[in-house]
Every structure is written in C-alpha cells, then in structure tokens.
C-alpha cells in the first residue's frame, strides 16, 4: 500500500512537471526554423557557375581573403527575398561585401529580379539542386551567413533581414573581423 501511494505521488509529480513544460513552451515564441550545425566550422568547398551574366560565379575560396563577408541565399521566386532587398542594399552601403547564391533559379529570372530589387552582390553563384544549401545547413531562403576572414562560418541569420537586423549583422561582421 505504501509503495502504491509513493508510485502515485511520483505520477502526480511527473504530471505536474509535464504541465509545467507545456506552460513554459506555450510562453515561448514558436521557432520552427532549423538552425545550421555548421556555425564555427569552415565553409564547405564549392565552386559555383555565375547565376547570371552580370556577376562572376562564387567559390568557397573567394571567402578566405582575410576580410569578413556576408553570404546571402536567395531565389527570384521567393517573395520574402524581395522584402529584404532594401536591407541588403543598406548593408552594402555600410561597407559590407555581400556574395550570394541563387537557389533553383534561371539566369533570366535572376537578372530580372536584380534589376527590379537592386543588386548589392559582388559575386553570385547558382545552385540548381540545393546542394550547397544542404552543405551549409541552411533551412531555406532567404538566409544570410557571416563568414570570417579565414573562411569560417561565424553567424547564421534565418529568414528576412528586417531593419532591426541590419545593425546586428554589421556587429556580427565586425566581431568576425576582430575575432579571427
């Protein structure tokens, strides 16, 4: 009998713990994005064809030049990517070098997209089968990585860059520059 009572109280405690967990999770903002496990790791090797004629293609070796740079993943077919275009331009004006990878995209679509929404990118590689997206551990588009001067992935920003994110990204760039 005593054992039964102890068992039952254990169950009560477990249930209370469960309710506590639920309550805690309900208060947490739901973040469904999958974060990359590559933060702190060197950039995977790649060498991509140009996404359109206006800019050269992109290789992983373009990053290890001593300067921290941004790597933006986008697609002309992705609506949120249009939303973040002004912020990318702001980052460029603030002195950041931004490279990009166009995912599953046709050259003429990329050209039209950049014509309408602006082109802050130095180099743009094309990834037709999301291969580099997977290599980077990126969950989708848009997504922006900070790569430090030694070619290491320092920071990942998932989703649209809003105006609030611009100073954060600049700060991360600076930190990547001083840290390495």
């Amino acid at each position: 009998m005593r054992q039964l009572r102890i068992t039952l109280w254990i169950i009560v405690v477990l249930a209370a713990g469960l309710f506590g967990l639920f309550a805690y999770q309900l208060t947490q903002p739901k973040d469904d994005s999958v974060r990359s496990a590559m933060i702190g790791e060197p950039l995977p090797q790649f060498d991509l064809e140009p996404a359109f004629e206006g800019r050269p293609g992109l290789a992983s070796t373009d990053f290890a030049n001593g300067e921290p740079q941004l790597l933006n993943l986008f697609g002309s077919w992705c609506i949120p990517c249009r939303v973040e275009a002004p912020q990318l331009e702001a980052l460029e004006r603030a002195g950041a070098t931004i490279h990009a990878i166009a995912l599953r995209d046709q050259p003429q679509d990329v050209a039209r997209f950049l014509e309408i929404y602006g082109n802050p990118f130095t180099r743009i590689g094309r990834d037709d089968i999301s291969e580099i997206q997977f290599a980077l551990g990126a969950s989708g588009v848009p997504e922006t990585f900070v790569i430090d001067g030694s070619g290491r992935i320092a920071y990942q920003h998932i989703g649209v860059i809003t105006e609030r994110d611009v100073p954060i990204l600049l700060q991360e760039l600076q930190r990547a520059g001083s840290g390495s």
């Binding site: 009998m1 009572r5 039952l8 109280w9 009560v12 249930a15 309710f19 639920f22 309550a23 309900l26």
Partner: peptide, 20 residues
C-alpha cells in the same frame, strides 16, 4: 492546459490520497 491541469492534476491528487 488550465483545464487539463485542473481535471487531470486534480483527479491524480484525489487518487493518490484515496487509493489506499
């Protein structure tokens, strides 16, 4: 969740008190 905690938590406590 509040209902869950009230009914189930309550029932379990009653049970633990009364089971013997």
């Amino acid at each position: 969740l509040a209902l869950l905690a009230l009914y189930i938590g309550g029932a379990l406590v009653i049970f633990a008190l009364r089971a013997h």
